[in-house]
C-alpha cells in the first residue's frame, strides 16, 4: 500500500504553472525526498497534499483515501513558513495545536512532557515562546508536527536554520519514526541530507518532475564513472586529458566525471608526482552532481 498517491496534478497561478502534471507514489514506511531548486514547486506540491491549496487538475490519495479535511488529523505537516504565537506559553501552544489535531485532552499532558523531554526542553514549558532561542522554537515546531502521532509526516525544509547538533537530533528522530512504520516526505535543496536518509527521491524543476525513483537505483544508472579526489596542489591541467568530461573543483577536493568507457587509471597516472593525493576513489556521482546536471540541462 502507498502512503501517498499523486495522480497527474497541476496547479496554475494566472499564467504561471507552479506544478505541472506531477505523479508520485510513495510506499508506506519510507523516507521520501522532494528535491528541487528554489521556486521549483515543492512547497506548492506539499500544500496541495495538505489540502491548503486545491489542485486545478488531478487526484491525491492519502493513506488509501481521497484527501479531505478529515485526513488532516492523520498527517503531521511542518510548513516552510512556520512560526508560533510569540506571547503564548510553550505548554499552552502545544496543547492548543494538539487540540485542533484531535489529541484527546487527557492524553495531552503526557505527550507534551514526553516530547519536551526528548528534545531536551523540559523546564521551558511555562516560558513564553518569544523567550526561546530560534533553535528551540524550531524544535517546538517539530514537536507540534508529530504530537498527534501521525502516520504520514510532511516536512517542508525541516533542517533550514538548524545547527549541526539539532540537525542530527531531528535526523535521528526521523529515522526513529521510520522504524515505527511512519512515512516521511520532506523537501530540501541540501543534497547531503537526502543521501544520508532517503529511500526514494523525486527531483522537480520548473513545475515538472525530472527524475524519480529509488536513490540507490538512480545512482546505479549513472554508473561508477566519477572520481572523488582529495588533493593538495593544482589540478587545472587535468582538463586537457582525453578521459575527462567535467571537473567540479572545490580547491582541496574535486569530483571528476569521466567520459563514457574512459579508464580512470590514466587520470591517476597523470596525477602522480604533480600533486599530493589524499584520496582517490571511483564512485557513482554524488546526488549534488546529478542535481546540478539535471537542473542545468533543463535550463537550456
Amino acid at each position: 500500500m502507498y502512503a501517498l498517491e499523486i495522480d497527474n496534478i497541476s496547479k496554475r497561478f494566472g499564467n504561471f504553472y507552479a506544478v505541472q502534471n506531477l505523479s508520485l507514489k510513495i510506499p508506506q514506511g519510507t523516507i521520501y525526498g522532494l528535491l528541487g531548486p528554489n521556486g521549483a514547486g515543492k512547497t506548492t506540491t506539499l500544500r496541495m497534499i495538505m489540502n491548503i491549496i486545491i489542485p486545478d487538475e488531478g487526484k491525491i490519495r492519502v493513506l488509501g483515501r481521497t484527501m479531505g479535511e478529515d485526513m488532516k488529523q492523520r498527517i503531521g505537516y511542518l510548513p516552510e513558513d512556520r512560526g508560533l504565537y510569540p506571547k503564548m506559553k510553550v505548554g499552552d501552544i502545544l496543547e492548543f495545536l494538539g487540540e485542533i489535531k484531535g489529541v484527546p485532552k487527557n492524553a495531552m499532558p503526557g505527550k507534551i512532557d514526553y516530547w519536551l523531554d526528548k528534545f531536551e526542553l523540559t523546564g521551558w514549558k511555562t516560558k513564553k515562546v518569544d523567550e526561546l532561542s530560534k533553535g528551540m522554537q524550531q524544535k517546538i515546531q517539530f514537536i507540534v508536527t508529530i504530537i498527534h502521532d501521525p502516520e504520514l509526516i510532511i516536512l517542508d525544509e525541516p533542517f533550514a536554520g538548524l545547527d549541526p547538533v539539532n540537525t542530527k537530533l531531528i535526523k535521528d528522530i526521523m529515522l526513529g519514526l521510520k522504524d515505527q512504520g511512519k512515512t516521511i516526505i520532506f523537501s530540501t535543496h541540501r543534497m547531503e541530507q537526502v543521501e544520508m536518509i532517503c529511500d526514494n527521491i523525486c527531483l522537480i524543476n520548473k513545475a515538472r518532475m525530472v527524475l524519480e525513483g529509488n536513490l540507490a537505483g538512480i545512482k546505479k544508472q549513472y554508473g561508477k564513472n566519477t572520481i572523488l579526489l582529495e588533493y593538495e596542489g593544482d589540478i587545472g591541467f587535468l582538463r586537457n586529458r582525453p578521459e575527462v568530461e567535467k571537473i567540479d573543483d572545490y580547491g582541496r577536493s574535486a569530483e571528476i566525471r569521466l567520459k563514457d568507457k574512459a579508464d580512470a587509471q590514466g587520470v591517476l597516472a597523470g596525477l602522480v608526482g604533480k600533486v599530493r593525493i589524499g584520496k582517490f576513489e571511483i564512485q557513482e556521482p554524488s546526488l549534488n552532481t546529478i542535481f546540478i546536471e539535471k537542473v542545468g540541462r533543463n535550463e537550456q
Binding site: 498527517i75 512556520r82 508560533l84 504565537y85 485542533i100 507540534v144
Partner: peptide, 17 residues
C-alpha cells in the same frame, strides 16, 4: 496580521480550514 507575520497561519491550517 500577527498570525500572518509570525507565520503561524500555515501551522494552524494544517489542522483546520
Amino acid at each position: 496580521i500577527e498570525e500572518k507575520s509570525n507565520r503561524v497561519v500555515e501551522v494552524v491550517l494544517s489542522s483546520l480550514k
